Amino acid sequence: MTHNKQYKTISVLSIAGFDGSGGAGIQADTKTISSLGCYATNVLTALPVQNTQGVQTIFEIPGIAIDQQITSIMDDIYPDAIKIGMVHSVELVEIIAKHLRNYTGPVVFDPVMISTSGHQLIKDETIDACKTHLFPLATLITPNLDEVSVLVNKKISTVEQMEEAGKQIVEMGTQAVLVKGGHLQQEELTSFLVRSNQPTEQFKSQRIASKNTHGSGCTLSSAIASYLAQGYSLSESVKQAQAYIQQAIETSKDLIIGKGNGPLNHFFDPKKLILKTV
Rank of each mutant, 00 (worst) to 15 (best):
T2V: 13
K5F: 11
L13A: 08
G25W: 01
A28H: 02
L36W: 00
L36N: 00
G37K: 00
N42L: 12
A46N: 03
P48C: 01
Q56S: 13
F59Q: 10
E60D: 15
A65S: 02
I66Y: 00
D67C: 05
D76M: 14
A81H: 03
V87A: 04
S89G: 07
I95G: 03
I96D: 12
I96K: 13
A97M: 12
H99R: 13
L100N: 13
Y103Q: 04
T104L: 11
P111Q: 00
I114R: 03
T116V: 15
S117Q: 11
H119I: 04
D124R: 09
D124V: 11
E125I: 04
E125W: 06
T126Q: 02
C130P: 10
H133W: 05
P136C: 10
L137I: 03
L137K: 01
D146H: 14
E147K: 15
V148H: 09
V148Y: 09
V148R: 08
L151E: 09
N153A: 10
M162Q: 02
M162T: 04
E163D: 01
E163V: 14
E164T: 15
K167I: 06
E171Q: 12
V179L: 01
K180W: 02
G182Q: 02
Q186S: 13
E187K: 12
E188Q: 07
L189W: 00
L193V: 03
L193I: 05
N197H: 14
S205C: 08
H214T: 07
L220C: 10
L220N: 04
S226G: 12
S226I: 12
Q230F: 06
V238K: 14
Q247I: 14
A248R: 09
E250Q: 14
D254N: 12
D254W: 05
L255R: 12
L264W: 13
L264M: 03
N265Y: 06
I274L: 12
I274C: 10
